[in-house]
Amino acid sequence: MKDIAATLRAWMDAGRPFALASVVATTGSSPRPLGTALAVDADGTAVGGVSGGCVEAAVYVRCQEVLESGTAATESFGSTEEERFYLGITCEGSMEVLVVRVEPDDPAIGAALDAILAGEPVSLVRAVDGPHVGDAVAISPNGFAGRLELGAIDLPAVSGTVRGGAVEGDTAVRFAVEVYSPPPRLLVYGGVDFAAPIVRVAKTLGFRVTVCDARPVFATEIRFPDADEVIVDWPHRHFDQAAVDADTAIVVLTHDAKFDLPLLERALASEAGYIGALGSRATHRDRLERLREAGLAEDALARLRSPIGLDLNGRTADETALSIVAEIVAVRNDARAGFLTNAEGPIHH
């Protein structure tokens, strides 16, 4: 739902009800994760998707039916070989999709969308089956919004869970929890020519991007219109004030020891999930030696990725940016980052 949040919020603000179809369970090979959503309004306009194409038409029809009836339902797609043939599902996976009608004043969906768009953490807990299928509550640091009748569930205890269940009377009730975290951060140090396309690509992938350079002529909003922040400061001084966690990626592009080394000493001691620095292999060897002299241990130095990026043999700034951001994504996803055509096993692992 995250990728269509702005459109759904606009529909609600305009008083337009819509049907929301969300992936709540998958088995086997599935191209989209839990929480992926397709929405259809009364005019038949569709946004998002649940499968990458193979069951979109069937889900679209189901959305129109639920939008008209108002009755929520959980549907299974691809659970049998016959159904996969009928729907044109070529992979050996199946999925369950929860379809609900969303009114413009829906408190749970509205609160979840507001939190997503504000970059705040929120969990959306929804009944997948049982007598109250489709009921939902949004849980955020600001409290609860919505209604979820699931017996004696302690809602605060489930906010970090992926799936779970409860018993209401003699009926087993399943629920799904969609957890939306704030966007990952990318700190780009150095306003060089590679930085602008890195910012563009990273923003497309949902990162919150900060560009920092000590040189005012290079750190300008005109050069980096897509960045969330453009800071004029020494990189290490800015880093000392930055909130860095495991969802933070750090890209060092200045290629100048007086900027790079003080910054990398701090970055390699932080919790940052990715740290990469521009430079040749010779530059990297020299940089490592200087960092050793500064007292950094080998396990810290092993975290530094340089030369930076995946091996795409790119030459242009755009190709270099693609290589760097692709490596960040690969590290975040703990991926092999090789050619899929040469790999074995599941595509989505």
Rank of each mutant, 00 (worst) to 15 (best):
A5Y: 00
A6H: 04
L8V: 04
A10Y: 00
W11Q: 04
W11R: 05
R16F: 05
F18K: 02
A21E: 09
A25Y: 06
R32L: 05
L34I: 06
T36Y: 02
L38K: 02
T45D: 15
V47N: 10
G49A: 07
V50F: 11
G52K: 09
A58R: 00
A58M: 01
Y60H: 12
V66W: 07
E68P: 02
E68K: 06
S69A: 15
G70Q: 02
E75F: 13
E82K: 11
E83T: 03
Y86C: 05
Y86R: 14
L87W: 07
L87C: 03
I89D: 00
I89S: 03
G93P: 07
L98N: 07
R101Q: 15
R101F: 12
D105S: 11
P107H: 05
I109K: 01
G110S: 00
I116F: 04
A118Y: 06
A127Y: 01
D129H: 06
D129C: 06
G130V: 10
H132F: 11
G134N: 01
D135N: 13
I139E: 07
F144N: 08
E149H: 08
G151N: 01
D154I: 02
P156K: 01
V158A: 05
V158H: 08
V158R: 09
S159L: 04
G165M: 13
V167H: 10
G169D: 03
R174H: 12
R174V: 02
F175Y: 15
E178N: 10
V179N: 15
Y180E: 07
P183I: 00
P184A: 06
P184C: 03
L187N: 02
D193Q: 14
F194D: 15
I198M: 14
V199C: 13
T204S: 13
V209Y: 08
T210E: 04
D213N: 02
E229M: 00
D233I: 00
R237M: 14
R237S: 15
H238K: 01
H238G: 01
D240M: 08
A242K: 05
A242C: 10
V244G: 10
A246D: 09
D247L: 07
L253C: 06
F259W: 10
L261V: 14
L264V: 12
A267K: 04
S270N: 10
S270W: 09
S270R: 08
E271K: 12
A272H: 12
G279L: 11
S280K: 11
A282R: 15
L291I: 09
L291T: 09
L291N: 06
L296E: 08
A300F: 03
A300D: 08
A300W: 01
L301M: 05
A302E: 15
A302Y: 07
L304H: 02
R305M: 08
G309P: 12
A321T: 02
A321L: 09
S323F: 12
V331C: 12
R332D: 04
N333P: 02
A335F: 08
G338L: 05
G338W: 02
E344P: 06
E344M: 10
P346Q: 14
